[in-house]
Amino acid sequence: MAAVKTTSEVTLNRLAVVAVLIITIIFLAPIYWITATAFKPRNLATTIPPTVVFEPEISPFVKLFLRRSQLREQPTAEEYAEAPWWERLVFDGGEKIVRDGKGNVQLSGYPSRFMNSLIVAISSTVLAVGMGTLTAYGFSRFKVAGEQDWLFFILSTRMLPPVVVAIPMFLMYRWFGLNDTHLGLIILYTAFNLSFSVWLMKGFIDEIPKEYEEAALVDGYTRMEAFFKIVLPEAATGIAATAVFCFLIAWNEYAFALIMTRRDAQTAPPFIPSQVGSGLPDWTVIAAGTFLFLIPVAIFTFLLRNHLLRGMSFGAIRK
């Protein structure tokens, strides 16, 4: 039967499309702004009104990745002519690239910060989701003495705003020598995410009928094998959703990263705003750093999008 729509339904439908478009524009505007700024020449980044049409250039990225300093004097015509194209871009911005004694260029702090972010976010996500899934499985399938109290205790670790404990954490970390180490941040983010991961995964695992595992048990598998062969594949959606949330929290975390790390283990969030350039803040470099910082999250979320959509509604609707 063909769907026949009345006039009012058509109007409502069009209104909904318009509303969705407006909301989409509002949500995408900051992303457009960052992306556009990342490709602007420095002098167009802060114009009022904003420059919309411009010739995109790559110089903010060159500046983001390389160490540079303020030019004292203009480069000579020879220096300028000999310089590769990317160095000229830096000259044009009134800066020069810092070279070591052998004339090699040096990387800025950004690549290592970016790597730190990846290391810390991925490790803590794997740990939090892995431990959370096992814990949730235990609570879901076995009789645990004081189960409700334990679960409440696990949840209660999230009841305090994390920053409240920042100073005691800092002192503890100094005592243990965990300040400015990858391990320190990984432990911290895992602890943050664990309670969340346990609760979310418990919801997902509770939804998987016990009988699947019992079938596997009588089919000749041990409980451990049943867990890996039956429960994990069945919980894939939940694991994916939980992983995305944990990854986002660890990837975006700012306050503790600012307090607990300085150089070696510093992640990108506290580093990017410190890139004020030499002299006035160079918003194009900050935008370039932010733009690159968005990409892993976009890829991760895109890859898991089907699981995520199901995961949201799956976890939300409980009996």
């Binding site: 019992e214 079938a215 000749g220």
Partner: peptide, 20 residues
Amino acid sequence: LKASDRDIAMVFQSFSLYPH
């Protein structure tokens, strides 16, 4: 003995076919 060591098969009311 554990279920896996008894060499017995079972059919459940809900069939319990592994969905994946």
